[in-house]
Design a protein around this nucleic acid. Sequence first.
RNA 1: GCGGGCAUGGCGGAACUGGCAGACGCGCUAGACUUAGGAUCUAGUGGAUUCUUCCGUGGAGGUUCAAAUCCUCUUGCCCGCACCA
Length: 818
Amino acid sequence: MKYDFKMIEQKWQKKWETEKLYKVTEDSSKPKYYCLEMFPYPSGKLHMGHVRNYSIGDVVARYKKMAGYNVLHPMGWDAFGLPAENAAILHKLHPSKWTRENISNMRDQLKQLGLSYDWDREITTCEPDYYKWTQWFFLKLYERGLAYRKRSMVNWCPSCATVLANEQVKEGRCDRCSAEIEKKELEQWFFKITNYADRLLQDLKKLPGWPEKVKLMQENWIGRSEGVELSFTAEKTKDEIAVFTTRPDTIYGVSYLVLAPEHPLVEKLSKGTRQEQAVKDFKKKMQKLNEITRTSTETEKEGLFIGAYAINPINKERIPIWTANYVLMDYGSGAVMGVPAHDQRDFEFAKKYGLDIKVVISPKDRSINSQNMTQAYEDNGFLINSDKFNGLDNEKAIKVIGDYMEKAKIGNVKVNYKLRDWLISRQRYWGAPIPIIYCEKCGIVPIPEEDLPVMLPSDIEFNPKGTSPLLYCDEFLKTKCPNCGGPAKRETDTMDTFMCSSWYFYRYTDPKNTKQPFSEDKVNYWMPVDQYIGGVEHAILHLMYSRFFNKVLKDAGLVKTDEPFKNLLTQGMVLKDGLKMSKSVGNVVSPEEIIEKYGADTARVFILFAAPPDKDLEWSDKGVEGAYRFLQRVWRLVEQLDDKRSDNNGKPCEEVDREVRRVTHKTIKKVTEDIEERFNFNTAISAIMEMVNVLYASIDKNISKVVKTEALENLLILLSPFAPHITEELWERIGKTQSIHLMPWPEYDEEVLIEDEIEIVIQVNGKVRSRINVQRNIGKQDMEQMALSDDKVKDFLKDMKIVKTIVIPGKLVNIVAK
RNA sequence: GCGGGCAUGGCGGAACUGGCAGACGCGCUAGACUUAGGAUCUAGUGGAUUCUUCCGUGGAGGUUCAAAUCCUCUUGCCCGCACCA
């Protein structure tokens, strides 16, 4: 019979679904395993990246289940977001309708892939039974002082018509639509993620199961730096100018101060000086430039004396105050001390404007002088021109001077972070409304818990004006204050969708709970996620927000885990012709087509076989055909071997039996280790292919029934996590009544692996010259003897003198000769 | 500029702690079966070659009996951050 994948896949998908084969509940008798793949945004169609992501996860889930774990493997929808709203504007379709239709399509596609999800746990973030709890968490954060409203310069995406968090801006462009980001001063809601900066950084150490790359990216993003914040005093006005520096050891080398153009003191200090007008012009000029070009490393440093002087607190020296493009208002205190001799940026600036260069750190082996320096000296050395600190090693001086400043009350040792608070307001409709009311009398009032969810009204006018459409919906906007009953208005912004995805993995543990976001028992049983799988594009965004959430929830006593995701696998991209698949390049291969033409098992096997999961994968139509051929080969092999299982004409050949048994157990070992230790599915599949090749060669040989059966059953079981349908069908055909996916994972017998004769390599001067077969337990001396008496070796050694021989038992002999 | 990754046949990729480079698959070549096959099966397939060797893991050195693997330098590509004080 032909391998009819279409019939087979449909048959089993239906059966698995009706029998609820993948339903899971808490079970204290088994170890739990939570296998999670990043849930998709329901764009309408599955792409190859999804297929890869979910195939990888499915192998892990199925394997762990067979290995005896109680496996939670859920799926859901990250369903709030801009595309739905844009589609609504474009096609006059309501976002909720658009989203639901997409979900329905994508759910069908996922089901066609034969993934082992417990669909009873499906969650959808745009449904009120979910976003009620998203709002509830907002209130929790508000209660804990972690949600606050602040007026500040924020990132504005003109194309998405909303503000964005820092993490959502890449190289000055919107992460979603690549439009250039503008700066706007607005009052917005923030989460105090900076309160957790240090824990987010420190706890990365608790994540040995995460890729180094991702941890490093988070580390850099958090950007911790230790230093001193000290104040200079403005000469005339006596204003304190706070300056952050990581190099207090160079304090005697300060020859000027630079304030960011937006620094409030710039205007104040220049007032009434001859520079006043010039400063105003400079500021205007800076404002016109966008953030990216102004702060780019390539942009030339540009600055202006503001007409005022400051006093260096350590030596009372009078130094000029400047403003310049290269100082950023939103890092540190928005002001820096200029030390041209020991900072390259300051050096360039000082050279350009003829400012003093004072050497205060001297290298140990030579001396430098400010006259002929061509660049700043940023390396270590000892202090000079630094009063009582002269001669000190500068690395020590950092601490010594820091302590001195604290004692003298001119500065504080301080830690600065690059990380900023998470801006969560969005001026868009399709998101969870922020559960806040503004009362004329009481001010900001959180919505009482019992009034949740704040329902998103469905009858709404879409027209992106840069304000939320909710603002024009009176029945939503106008409300009563829960405190005083007086007239009040609702917050009309919605929450960043990353808020919805920061807690969805808890909800899977208890998806239908109407009283709580999740019950304590269930969340404690399942969390943390044992294996999380998804794209590296979330290395900072989703993964850091979720870690932050977890820590807040832990502090609130809602969960017990320190970290939500114990192990993380970031899968590589799916490429075609070396490029990422994308509509604009026109190199997209649709999963639908592939499933239609070859079936889901083929698609899965190809994708898992073509590259290790963490590497990029080059799509190959020929490769897909290869995977298809392989499955057909398995189909024929099982048919043929099974046919011959009963008729044992002739005595079974012991040697063939042993070989078949050996390959069976060898394959069990290899596949188990490849999945378990390294997620190397490509080599696991190649081992199964090798086994199939050996079995093929033995079809016409006399194998005993037991050995044949053992080989066949194990072959199907080993292949079942990769190709669940064909293996299930063949399993039934060889007479099994219980699903293959409920079988225990096989164990291998070390004894069977042992070969009586092994081949060893004989090298002369490190080059292979001969191979010989020897008994497996041969001693070192015997090996050496046999090597030396080998004809080919003798031939090679004819005119040479043996210097020494190296014997690696069971592997090789290397004869060193001259 | 800083941080990280990668580089192996015609192609995707193997080679775990230094010990047979190129497993497995694709492609290619030949043969078998066949009315025919772009199906299937079998065999071969890194390069050069005086058929015996030689050369081969981006490049140049080094350590070692032995290096794709370890060290130093270097080139190219990819990713993240980017005047972070």
